[in-house]
Design a binder for these strands. Structure first.
Length: 316
DNA sequence: TGTTGCTTCGAAGGATTC
DNA sequence: GAATCCTTCGAAGCAACA
């Protein structure tokens, strides 16, 4: 019996939900805890998606106990944006967490595929200089650094990707790649988790993170019915446990699986999901969030309300 | 204490939408 | 063309077990 099926101790770290407590038949392929989105929470959608609504960790009394326990220790740092890294070259993300009185630091050293200059200029990056290559980082983002400049204009690099990050000196082929990369250096995370307040640079990262609070597990192993929050987890499970390697064509896109976050119902198309929500959850804030993507919403988008982040594997 | 399986998340490449 | 979304890879950390 795979250990994955063993019930973990109840004393889980506060930063993680322990959906393994639940039998797989209850989680199903798309397990969603009941009442995970109290109406009081979903009602607040003026400026943010449901996932970006009022941080629940600030209103725990409105939550079911089990959800309240889902509060990540990062809540303790709400309103306290992380200090900028002492060394801007570090691609180390430090998450402060606390276990009761004990606070610990979880660090992640990201080894990216970004291309570093093979012969980096020994002179320090002129991050504060006027950008030459142009930057798309909006002033409102609070990002203090310039995005960079075309590396082709910098000295002796041969065939180097044209856009270089002035902070970490990585090179990118496209300006948009560089622009997005610069978010990594931005301490102001635009997309905040409504449950714990943790910020993310990308809407999809937020959506993916929210699943850890909601318990939505869109990826189901068809062999043992165990469900996972991320596809890579499923594929890893399939490979290690069942010795089944899911193979897809290069860049093949799986069929999308639209998940109703009210009840867990899955639909093959967005229209079908829309119909489902309209008929069964007419008061759902998710329904409102299904409006025009950029019609009346802020720059943050509505991603948190989207259930289309859940793409089913091809085998489903 | 080492191994294994799972969870979570950062980040880049590419596709899609606006 | 820019912004957003999706996919993918990889790493760190944890729990459970040998």
């Amino acid at each position: 019996m795979p250990r994955a099926f063993l019930v973990k101790k109840a004393n889980v770290s506060p930063g993680k939900r322990n959906w393994s407590e639940l039998p797989d038949h209850e989680r199903g392929d798309v397990y969603i805890p009941a009442s995970i989105f109290p109406p009081s929470v979903l009602a607040n959608e003026d400026e943010a998606s449901p996932a970006e609504a009022v941080p629940l960790c600030l209103t725990k009394q409105t939550l079911p106990e089990r959800l309240a326990r889902a509060e990540l220790p990062s809540c303790t740092a709400l309103g306290q944006p992380p200090s900028p890294p002492a060394n801007q070259d570090d691609v180390v993300e430090v998450q402060k967490r606390s276990r009761g009185d004990l606070e610990f630091v979880r660090s992640k050293i990201k080894v990216t595929t970004g291309e570093l200059l093979s012969d980096p200029d020994p002179t320090p990056p002129h991050a504060a200089e006027t950008p030459i290559g142009g930057t798309a980082i909006p002033p409102s983002s609070g990002f203090p650094y310039s995005a960079g400049r075309p590396a082709a204009q910098t000295s002796t690099n041969r065939a180097a990707p044209p856009y270089a990050c002035q902070v970490c000196r990585k090179n990118f082929q496209h300006q948009r790649m560089l622009n997005r990369h610069m978010k990594c250096h931005n301490e102001n995370k635009r997309h905040l988790c409504s449950f714990c307040g943790k910020g993310f640079n990308d809407t999809f990262d937020l959506k993916r993170h929210v699943r850890t609070h909601t318990g939505v597990r869109p990826y189901k192993c068809e062999v043992c019915d165990k469900a996972f929050t991320q596809r890579c987890s499923l594929e890893s499970h399939m490979k290690k446990i069942h010795s089944v390697t899911l193979q897809y064509a290069y860049k093949e896109r799986r069929n999308k699986l639209y998940v109703c976050e009210e009840c867990g119902h899955t639909a093959a198309t967005q229209d079908e999901l829309q119909l489902h929500i309209t008929s069964l959850h007419p008061d759902s804030a998710l329904l409102k969030a299904k409006g025009p993507r950029r019609g009346n919403e802020g720059p943050d988008g509505e991603a948190g309300a989207d259930s289309d982040d859940t793409t089913g594997s091809a085998g489903q």
